[in-house]
Every structure is written in C-alpha cells, then in structure tokens.
C-alpha cells in the first residue's frame, strides 16, 4: 500500500474468507485473503481448479456472501445489505463469464441483453433511434455489426462473437471494475487475441480495473500488470507479473510454471512431482 501511493485501490479485501457447509462437512474455499486491486490495473488471479478463485470472484461480485473479513470498495467498506444498494454496487462491477454459450438466455434475442444495459444506465426513456445508435457504437467497438445481429438469437452466433458481445455489454455499462472469469478458455486460439485486445482497449478507454481469473499462467503473464497466485484458498505469491512469473519465489508458483509446456526454453520433463 505504502509503495503505491500514486495509485488508488479500487477494490480491496482484508481477511476475506468463504466457508461452505458447517460442522463435519465444512470446506474452506477462500481462506483469509488480503488484496488491493488498483484503479486501471489488470490483475490476474491464477490458480488450478479447486483453488477457490471462482468463489472469490463470486464474493467480489456480491453473488454470494462473505463468511468472514471485509471487502472494501474505493477505500470504503462495501455495503450491499439491501437490494437497492446491491443494484447500485452492480453499476460499478460487472462480469464476463467463462462459457459464452451459457451466459445468454437462449429464449431472448440478443437485443434484449444490450437494451438491459441501457436501462441499467438510466437510458430507459430515450427514443429508440438513440438507443440503436448507442448499441451500434458498442457493437462496432468489438468489431460486430449491430444491423447484422439485431433480431438474432444467441445460438445463431459463434462462441467468439458471443464473447465479444459480452464485451460490448461491458462497453455500454462502463463499470469501474470488470471481473473476467476465464473469458478465453472456451474460445479458439485465433479468436483469443481479439478478445484480449478488446479487454486492453477497454481498460485504456475508460480506465477500468480488470480482474482476470485464469488457470493459464502464460495468459496471466501476457495480459496482466499484477498477478496473484492462489493455492487452496490462499494467495501464495503476488506482485508485478514480470517478477512473479519470470522470477517466482514461492515453491508452488515455481512448480506451476515449470509444469507448463515451453517453447523458447527447454521444457524439463524430469522435474515431475509424483503425486
């Protein structure tokens, strides 16, 4: 905190914990984690499946309650006690989920997704032409043509197009924080670059904080300013991406990085941990 005086923390956590179940079936999904995500930064949370990264993201989104600890939004304790306050909070934080195919309600045309965003921003009573103009702008931001998409159902789009439309949604909402939960893992490599580029562009354009949740350490290294490595509900290492990935200090981080196939260096298959 002291080192980064010039950057304002946008979302912070102090001892954030999530425990599922009670008694004998108690499982600690997230175990007393502290973090500061600064404004305009791209922060990656890297962990294997079961590390608790998705649980943490749901807590930060306010979809599930925090068992213990505190989440601070712009330095103030987050208050989402009532529905109205939740609605207010959700104007500032929005997600992109992993699976674009399950992110849409397949019974409604995709226009309704974008119109919802406009309603949320208080543009409900604008004339329809103006709404179309705004939606067209959002679509062109993600290289889609609104005229081609309007009146279509989600299943008529490809996975890449759906995920881009999710970004268009974020562009319309302009939240302070974007929670991107593995946004490229279901997308082909060729379309992945497009999505990543758009996220970067979005950050530059509206100074958004992007929380990027992934299991792909290479992807985290490529896109983020700061990296948090998560193991069994705890952050084992964090810091600027260059430091953490290139010179990992923690044993778990080192193992994680050594286990990912390399291209430029030799990938040493003998350092396998026999588990």
């Amino acid at each position: 905190m002291a080192m980064e005086n010039e950057k304002k923390p946008c979302l912070s956590g102090r001892g954030v914990t999530k425990i599922f179940g009670a008694g004998k079936q108690e499982t600690v999904a997230v175990d007393h984690v502290d973090f500061d995500f600064n404004e305009g930064e791209i922060v990656s949370i890297v962990g294997e499946s079961g590390s608790g990264k998705t649980t943490l993201s749901k807590m930060l989104l306010g979809l599930i309650s925090v068992t213990e600890g505190q989440v601070l939004y712009q330095g103030q304790p987050r208050d989402i006690g009532t529905n109205a306050k939740k609605k207010e909070y959700w104007k500032n934080i929005q997600p992109i989920f992993q699976d674009p195919f399950s992110s849409y309600n397949i019974f409604y045309k995709i226009d309704s997704v974008l119109l919802d965003c406009l309603n949320m921003r208080g543009c409900k009573n604008l004339p329809y032409e103006q709404k179309v103009e705004m939606m067209t702008e959002a679509c062109s931001f993600v290289n889609l043509k609104f005229a081609e998409l309007t009146n279509k159902y989600p299943f008529e789009l490809s996975g890449g197009q759906m995920q881009r439309l999710m970004i268009a949604r974020i562009f319309l909402l302009k939240p302070k924080i974007l929670m991107a939960d593995e946004p490229t893992s279901m997308i082909d490599a060729c379309s992945r670059a497009t999505i990543l580029d758009m996220l970067l562009k979005l950050r530059d354009e509206i100074n958004m904080t992007v929380i990027f949740i992934t299991h792909d350490i290479g992807l985290a290294y490529y896109i983020s300013d700061k990296v948090y490595i998560m193991e069994h509900g705890r952050f084992v290492e964090s810091g600027p991406a260059e430091d953490v990935i290139i010179n990992p200090k923690d044993a778990y981080t080192r193992r994680l990085i050594s286990d990912v196939p390399k291209i430029y260096e030799k990938w040493d298959l003998d350092t396998v941990l026999n588990k």
């Binding site: 989104l61 979809l63 959700w90 997600p95 399950s102 992110s103 309600n105 019974f107 965003c117 949320m120």
Partner: peptide, 26 residues
C-alpha cells in the same frame, strides 16, 4: 448457478423477473 441467471441478477433484475424470464422458459 448458471451464468445467464447470474448475469441477469447483476443487471439488477428482480427475483420475479428472473424466475419468469430466466428460469421458467428453461
């Protein structure tokens, strides 16, 4: 716990609306 329901929640929709538009049709 499907993403589209979560997204609907985050879009500020009421419980009734979520049940009728995001759950019932499915």
């Amino acid at each position: 716990n499907r993403d589209h329901v979560n997204l609907s929640k985050l879009s500020g929709h009421s419980m009734m609306r979520i049940i009728f538009t995001d759950i019932l049709p499915y």
